[in-house]
């Protein structure tokens, strides 16, 4: 899946998925985000020690989750409805190639539960369950 912008409504500077590496529709998505020193949020977070805000790691997982149901979403956004059991184990820095792995953990009544892992070179940086709502 090369046409990322066709499947997500997010745009620069808030499009936080660069590539889809693996995808089983409705089951599992593995995406990638390359963190560059040009990311706007790194200018102030923090000046002396740029690192990706933890909340944006959750956003990356949510955006990657949008590709689980790409066929039926037709490019519209899914919305975060909840975050459970978020753990930030280690920060992400400029230069990191982040692997965003999202699995479907259940759905009912228009709400989906996703379990996500952000990792870099085999190290887990962040794990969380996300609840997202379809439009």
């Amino acid at each position: 899946m090369s046409e990322i912008p066709a499947h997500l409504p997010h745009r620069y500077p808030f499009l936080l998925v660069d590539r889809i590496l693996e995808r089983e529709p409705g089951v599992r998505v593995v995406a990638e985000k390359l963190v560059t020193s040009g990311e706007p949020y790194l200018q102030g977070h923090f000046q002396d020690r740029p690192l990706v805000p933890g909340a944006l790691l959750l956003e990356m997982l949510a955006q990657a989750g949008g590709f689980l149901e790409a066929e039926s979403l037709h490019g519209s956004a899914i919305f975060l409805a909840g975050v459970q059991d978020a753990r930030f184990r280690s920060p992400a820095f400029p230069g990191d190639r982040l692997r965003l792995e999202v699995k479907a953990a259940g759905a009912f009544g228009g709400i989906m539960k996703l379990s996500g892992i952000v990792s870099c070179e085999g190290r887990e940086l962040c794990t969380a369950s996300l609840l997202v709502k379809r439009p």
């Binding site: 953990a105 259940g106 009912f108 009544g109 989906m112 539960k113 709502k133």
Partner: peptide, 13 residues
């Protein structure tokens, strides 16, 4: 609410 509904569905299963 609807999030609780999903949690219950998963719990029941």
């Amino acid at each position: 609410d609807s999030i609780d509904a999903l949690e219950l569905v998963l719990g029941i299963e």
